[in-house]
């Protein structure tokens, strides 16, 4: 048991404008393959990563958003969205392409406190 750590991936950046959202998914999948306890937090512009209906043909870039829906198959089920960030962007849960747990800012902060490793993307 001592080899299992709590990894949290904090996603705060929008997709496509920079590579971080895509890279975060890569590390998330590898961390799960190492049998670690994985959770993802989406705050600030990171919430945009989960917006439904992404069409990337016009920018000639791979649409990686379906991967969020595939995470469940790797036993990655802890997806948290910060309520304040979501609302500040005019989004609601119905706009998101995957089931998430919406948490208030304080709850997100408390969750971060409980992690062993926090990686920012």
């Amino acid at each position: 048991m001592s080899d299992i750590k709590k990894f949290m991936f904090v996603n705060r950046k929008a997709p496509y404008g920079t590579i971080y959202a895509l890279e975060s998914l890569e590390v998330v999948l590898i961390t799960a393959a190492f049998d670690q306890e994985v959770s993802l937090a989406f705050m600030d512009d990171g919430v945009y990563q989960l917006k439904k209906g992404q069409q990337t043909k016009g920018i000639e870039t791979k649409n990686f958003s379906p991967t969020y829906r595939a995470l469940e198959g790797y036993d990655i089920e802890k997806l948290y969205v910060e309520k304040e960030s979501m609302e500040a962007r005019g989004l609601s849960e119905g706009d998101l392409l995957v089931d998430v747990t919406v948490l208030g800012k304080k709850e997100i902060g408390e969750l971060m406190d409980q992690q062993d490793v926090v990686l920012s993307f």
Partner: peptide, 14 residues
């Protein structure tokens, strides 16, 4: 940049 703002929004201690 909003990084400090975001941190102060969620962090209650530390």
């Amino acid at each position: 940049n909003g990084a400090l703002d975001s941190c102060l929004r969620v962090a209650e201690s530390g």
